[in-house]
Design a protein around this nucleic acid. Structure first.
Lengths: 240, 240
DNA sequence: CGTGCTTTTGAATAGTATCAAGGCCGGTGG
DNA sequence: CCACCGGCCTTGATACTATTCAAAAGCACG
């Protein structure tokens, strides 16, 4: 079957994967045995918000958006993830997933169940450690974003959303081009506003020579300007 | 010296402390040897934003606010912490602390240095695991708060800030009274607005019979109403 | 009993969301 | 091939919400 193939963790090429980085050879073998790898088509739902937690997902290849729904079901994008990163880690050892996840392009996802995970955690301290450090970093970023949401203007929040798209996906070799099919609505649910406003401020950003928009192609021509604005929100260091 | 006393981790009464929960007896002994416990007076700075990271802090007793400074140094409260919780964990294995921390009342804080910590992580998998789960939970809360910041009105954000004060500190046995010296400015830097607005909306919340304010005493009389509003922002479960 | 701080409140202003109309574009079916 | 449909995008007008500024009142503390 083409859509379900178990990639061997033992000779996995992904350098970023936490399984690979933290587990002993015999555990790589065990996990390979236990896990399932599934191909999701672009637009397909990987995790359903509120569904029971069975385990954790590791992105073997592809791009994914992670979101929660808020007031009146309004979508808020929590995070963008790609090859080598993980999904559903907020749910581990809890009842239900607090987030939903959708593939943004055709993606291969490896799934490992709860029991296998908790056994792996106890016997591979580096695995747990690596994951702990990942959480720590995500927490720092999330809290920084919190501050942005609280203090930035919409114009700035949209700058930030574009940078987030650019950092997580995008950029065809030094071209500053965001290489992902995005919509005004997607940008809006990162920035915490609505598509109308995004459209308005994209026009303004264009006028201010910070971005270029040619049809579907978005190019961040003045990345420095964007980063300078963001820096004015942090004390003495850069993040995100 | 009265302000520096090493509490023995081996017979520590705190049930919430991660050291206690996750470390072996001999490691409890080692950590007791290595750590320093310092008494901070109310208002005293425990961690300076942007200063180099030397280790992690464990709150033996007391209440602490954790914040970052944003645009024009505007303070944003990231988190409130109390007895049994930790500080400076966002900085571990990084260059500089992304946050500052100030004691809100007289507090005893245990400090453990980086080297001791990383050795403890490798040899006490439960310690690492417990801490990982803590990060995971903090991450989930932070991301939920992110959504609140993006979608709530100021009136609602202030409700949320009051609930946060109430949950983390406060409440004299079922009285619904927030038991912490807070200022309009503190509430503002949780909610992401300014003291003026807080004052305005506190008056409104009072008019709407949701809170009572008698001098310095704040009482949340209609806690259900507050929780109902918050619930309309989450999909299928409650958090925070 | 000042002095300096926080709090309250009003008025002006700025910023944002909402609504509605029209344009653009790609896909579908005649 | 062309007409039509439905989606997303753009843009203006309007209403609403939030911030800022300023002035005055309250309060804590020496």
């Amino acid at each position: 079957m083409r859509n379900v193939v178990n990639h061997q963790c033992n000779d996995c090429q992904l350098k970023g994967c936490f399984i690979n980085k933290g587990c002993s050879p015999q555990w790589l073998f065990k996990i390979t045995e236990k896990k399932t790898c599934i191909k999701y088509k672009s637009g397909q739902q990987i995790i359903h918000e509120g569904s029971p937690v069975f385990g954790m997902y590791f992105i073997y290849s592809g791009k994914v958006k992670v979101f929660t729904s808020g007031y009146n079901g309004k979508e808020q994008i929590v995070r963008l993830a790609k090859t080598g990163q993980i999904l559903g880690h907020r749910g581990y050892a809890r009842e239900k997933y607090p987030i939903g996840a959708v593939a943004l392009e055709d993606s291969w996802i490896c799934f490992v169940d709860n029991d296998t995970l908790s056994a792996a955690f106890l016997e591979n301290s580096m695995f747990t450690y690596e994951l702990m450090m990942y959480y720590s970093d995500e927490l720092r970023k999330s809290e920084a974003r919190n501050k942005y949401m609280a203090q930035m203007t919409v114009y700035e929040k949209i700058m930030f959303a574009l940078l987030m798209l650019y950092n997580h996906f995008g950029f065809k070799e030094n071209s500053n081009i965001v290489d992902i099919p995005y919509s005004r609505g997607d940008v809006a649910s990162i920035a915490g506003t609505n598509p109308d406003q995004v459209s308005r401020f994209l026009a303004e950003l264009k006028k201010d020579k910070i971005i270029e928009v040619n049809g579907k192609v978005l190019k961040l021509v003045n990345l420095d300007k964007i980063r300078t604005v963001l820096k004015s929100y942090v004390h003495s260091f850069t993040n995100e």
